[in-house]
Design a binder for these strands. Structure first.
Length: 259
DNA sequence: ATTACTACCTGACAGC
DNA sequence: TGCTGTCAGGTAGTAA
């Protein structure tokens, strides 16, 4: 589910409750969520105070007195403030001012205790244009798989890559190293624009994404190609096509997006 | 370095 | 109703 705009929306909705709060109890209802060692992780958290809530890429980071709790929501993870735990609740953190429930149907999400920030590339909202262009020109492959690589650039996922490539007029299979600097510069500015708009809209709620207070996002109403196979391209009217690129459903306009 | 494929999990939905 | 197959916002691991 969540890509950079959704994780950032969760961060913003959660930070006012979490910053300064003390962790009183941690219960993992699924050992998977704790990476297989729920007792050790719970012990590292209990008694600590949350000093800051930050984000890099799709990782939500709670800074405690002694390290970082790295929460990755993967596909279906949700963090819910003061919600009743449902059938898919995987962890419950009792704080001195409320309760944080981690809900995750598919159980891909993870809580990881770290001393250092997660090993991912520069955040898509933080990277500057020259660095962005250099990263992409340094690789041979198709542009879409490169944009999805979190070790190169962190935060983009399947929805936003398709939306950004559409707005930049670049075909998902275009070879990154063969794109001109002006086209990559355009890609950079469209990336910033799309991510900014999506955060402003509270993210994209395709099926079940909600922020920490249960609010859905609305950016799905502004998707131009994602999930729109067969519908007319908003720019030229040609039918949006769906293909598979690096094992991911890929949506694009075969007329507007050039290699 | 790049690409392909499998696996991890569960649920929704289409088609028979 | 109920079975089967496909798909899903993510990523790690292995092999060619």
């Amino acid at each position: 589910m969540p890509e950079l705009p959704e994780v950032e929306t969760v961060r913003r909705s959660l930070a006012p409750f979490l910053v300064g709060a003390r962790i009183l109890e941690v219960r993992f209802l699924s050992t998977l969520a704790a990476g297989g060692r729920p007792d050790a992780l719970a012990a590292a958290l209990v008694g600590r105070t949350i000093q800051a809530v930050s984000r890099t890429g799709k990782h939500l980071l709670l800074r405690l007195d002694s390290g970082l709790l790295d929460i990755h929501l993967r596909m279906t993870g949700k963090l819910l403030w003061n919600a009743e735990p449902g059938p898919h609740a995987r962890a419950i953190l009792t704080l001195d001012n409320g309760t944080l429930v981690f809900d995750d149907v598919r159980q891909f999400g993870r809580f990881v205790w770290r001393k250092e920030p997660p090993p991912v590339g520069p955040d898509a909202l933080g990277i500057d244009a020259p660095a962005f262009i250099d990263v992409l020109r340094a690789h041979r492959g198709a542009i879409k798989p490169l944009l999805l690589r979190q070790d190169l650039l962190s935060g983009l996922g399947n929805i936003y890559v398709d939306e950004i490539l559409f707005r930049a007029g670049i075909h998902p299979n275009a070879r990154a190293a063969r794109l001109s600097r002006p086209r990559l510069s355009r890609l950079y500015s469209e990336m910033k624009t799309v991510l900014g708009e999506a955060i402003g809209a509270g993210g994209s709620s395709i099926s079940d994404y909600v922020d920490a207070t249960g609010q859905r996002g609305s950016f799905q109403q502004r998707h131009r190609v994602y999930g729109k196979a067969g519908e007319p391209c908003p720019r030229c009217g040609a039918p949006i096509r769906r293909s598979v690129v690096s094992q991911r459903g890929t949506h694009f306009c075969p007329v507007c997006q050039k290699r």
